[in-house]
């Protein structure tokens, strides 16, 4: 469904700062896969997701989405099929616009936008239903500007925005990193619920090792721009955090050096 073949991405080429962010990535995603990707700082995880989203275009290789070669498509042309959430709660919602306006924009994901009223009573009803499932009471605050929401509420809304039009691929880049532990857990549980109920193919950079093990059916490790380990559901579900760190060290030949990911709860 989603296929990457020999994908490379270089930053600052031909300078002393040259970084090979993606080094020959090959990947074939099955529909419904929920993959977590771990790796040290600078391993290329975010770049990987950005290349999938079209925010960065690869320097070599091929990206296919649902059988279509989208390698050269900019972000807005891929948006119909890809939902994405950033770690910054301010990034995935429009602050000065209301909750229902944000959702109305998500409703039209990837479609031609014309001169019809963006908000109709039918849509309002739908938005209320979707928000009620989130369980944060947002369904009663449809006409409130998003800037008045807390970080957790904004990420919950971002999750609804990203999944409302049922994209073929959901990309989550440490989307709970900026939240307090309790809210992070809430948002993670909500993520699991939405992904499984809509059977979304998902790639997630988890905020910590526990998330990496607890969520998803496949776990991958990145190191220096390469995918160095790909664990299936069986193998993954038996792992503990220390074992996972151990597997990483063996596979990469280095110690796992991201304290934040190790220690974060």
């Amino acid at each position: 469904m989603i296929k990457l073949t020999n994908v490379y991405k270089v930053f600052f080429p031909n300078t002393s700062n040259e970084v090979l962010a993606l080094n020959n990535i090959n990947l074939d995603l099955n529909p419904g896969d929920f993959i977590t990707i771990i790796g040290s700082n600078g391993a290329g995880k975010s770049t990987f997701l950005k290349v999938l989203a079209g925010i960065e275009l690869p320097d070599a290789g091929k990206v296919e989405l649902a059988g279509k070669d989208v390698t050269a498509y900019p972000e807005y042309l891929r948006a119909k099929d890809i939902g994405r959430i950033d770690q910054d709660p301010l990034a995935s919602t429009a602050s000065e616009m209301t909750i229902e306006e944000n959702l109305a924009m998500a409703y039209k994901r990837g479609q031609v936008r014309g001169l019809r009223w963006a908000i109709t009573s039918n849509k309002e009803k739908l938005f209320k239903e979707v928000l009620a499932e989130v369980g944060l009471g947002l369904e009663n605050r449809l006409r409130v500007p998003v800037r008045t929401l807390s970080g957790g509420q904004r990420q919950a809304l971002a999750l609804v925005i990203a999944t409302l039009a049922e994209p073929k691929l959901l990309l989550l880049d440490e989307h709970t990193a900026a939240l307090d532990p309790k809210t992070a857990k809430q948002i993670m549980d909500l993520t699991g619920k939405i992904v499984s109920s809509k059977k979304l193919t998902t790639l997630m950079i988890p905020h910590n090792m526990e998330q990496a093990i607890k969520f998803g059916n496949r776990l991958m490790m990145m190191h220096r721009g390469q995918l160095i380990l790909d664990l299936g559901h069986e193998e993954k579900s038996m792992l503990t955090v220390p074992q996972l760190v151990e597997r990483f060290s063996t596979a990469s030949g280095t110690a796992f050096d991201d304290d934040r990911v190790l220690l974060a709860t």
């Binding site: 948006a79 994405r84 995935s92 919602t93 990837g110």
Partner: peptide, 9 residues
């Protein structure tokens, strides 16, 4: 939020 609306196509 230009990035956000671009990500919506």
């Amino acid at each position: 939020n230009e990035k956000m609306i671009r990500s919506l196509g």
